[in-house]
């Protein structure tokens, strides 16, 4: 008989793994940096955190560490992907041809003008 927390943990790990696989697929298939970043971010927030919590539920002695890891990922991941996207835009990585809206470009130009003055 398998304990109930092991089953819950396994379900969480399977959810996390499937999100990781989807994220990897998006990393290969999507056309430009910004779209790929989207896929990578999703796979970390839902995939890695779900796996961490799943491991914590399966082995309750690790639960505190797992929650700490999850909180740390939750703080750092959006910041780092924001920084990567901003750096890519500012170093001139082009958008995909099919992109319809680019609101950051005008804002960046305005800011550059402000700095020059």
């Amino acid at each position: 008989m398998i304990a109930i927390n092991v089953i819950i943990g396994m379900v969480l790990i399977i959810i996390g793994l499937s999100f990781q696989v989807l994220g990897a697929l998006g990393l290969i298939r999507l056309p430009d940096v910004y779209n790929r970043l989207q896929a990578a971010t999703k796979s970390i927030t839902l995939g890695a955190i779900s796996i961490a919590i799943g491991v914590g539920v399966m082995d309750p002695t690790l639960l505190t560490k797992a929650i700490l890891v999850a909180v740390f990922l939750l703080i750092t991941n959006p910041i780092s992907s924001h920084a990567i996207a901003r750096g890519a835009y500012r170093s001139g990585v082009p958008l995909w041809k099919g992109s319809v809206v680019d609101k950051y470009g005008p804002a960046l130009e305005r800011k550059e003008r402000e700095v020059k003055e």
Binding site: I75, T76, I79, H82, A83, R86, V115
Partner: peptide
Amino acid sequence: ILPPSLILNKGARLV
């Protein structure tokens, strides 16, 4: 140089 973005600045100070 451009100042860093608000999210980056505050997030780095948090982390």
